[in-house]
């Protein structure tokens, strides 16, 4: 699906990614973890072609992503901060994204799932943060793409919508898709993910399952395992 070789990225003098090598071949849910500023979002943005790497290559479904925007037809992306043009209505935004990508009928189910019907004719500027995030999720999931990238998907969601989101992620997984997630909510990661990629100072520190991480760190549960990785490296 995604293969990354020797990826380097600097912002001015600040090295963010320092030689990332990552191959994601099988379907399932992969969580990209790491402390603040470890390069999670930059890595994701590199895959999406929004950040241009200084060195290294990225292949998505076999095509090199350099100077080619068409591979993005295969990716659904949920950005971290949802901020839309304030003067557009929710319905118009959905129509617009469909117009820009391709027609789909999935949006109706998603709108029911997140109970967005009362907001369809409201302007985006008047929505609350959580509702905007729901609109964001609808936009990300309505195209049936084989690769889904979710950057902090739980931000601002109420418990019911969170359950809805988890179910949605599981349904997509059973369809054989690859889902890449970043999150700081460890319980959420533990619950949904099959594989963990742990970034530390721009390098991959750990790549494997949760159980392997527990073994490696000698910790009984996931949260402590992560904490021990962090304290060992910062102490």
């Amino acid at each position: 699906m995604v293969s990354i070789t020797d990826l380097h990225k600097k912002f001015n003098k600040n090295t963010v990614l320092n030689g990332i090598n990552l191959d994601i071949n099988k379907s399932g849910i992969i969580a990209v973890l790491g402390p603040n500023g470890s390069g999670k979002t930059t890595l994701i943005k590199c895959i999406l072609g929004m950040v241009i790497p200084n060195k290294g290559t990225i292949h998505v479904l076999g095509t090199n992503i350099k100077k080619n925007a068409n591979y993005k037809h295969q990716i659904d992306y949920l950005p971290q901060i949802a901020n839309f043009p304030n003067n557009l209505k929710v319905k118009e935004l959905i129509t617009m994204i469909k117009d820009l990508r391709k027609p789909t009928s999935q949006d109706a189910n998603l709108i029911t799932l997140f109970k967005l019907e009362p907001f369809l004719n409201k302007k985006l500027g008047t929505l609350s943060g959580g509702t905007k995030q729901k609109v964001n999720i609808v936009l990300a999931f309505m195209f049936d793409s084989p690769l889904i990238i979710l950057d902090e998907p739980t931000t601002g969601l109420d418990p019911i919508s969170l359950i809805g989101l988890k179910n949605l992620i599981q349904t997509e997984k059973t369809k054989g898709k690859t889902i890449l997630i970043t999150s700081h909510i460890m319980s959420f990661v533990e619950e949904v993910s099959d594989q963990i990629v742990f970034l530390l100072e721009g390098k991959i520190y750990f790549n494997g399952t949760i159980n392997q991480l527990k073994l490696k760190t000698n910790q009984p549960d996931f949260e402590n395992a992560i904490a021990s990785v962090l304290s060992n490296n910062y102490a």
Binding site: A69, K72, P79, I81, N83, F84, L100, L139
Partner: peptide
């Protein structure tokens, strides 16, 4: 429109 531009950049557009 910066955040919205980011959403557009993730779409298959030049």
């Amino acid at each position: 429109s910066k955040e919205f531009t980011e959403l557009l950049l993730a779409q298959p557009l030049k």
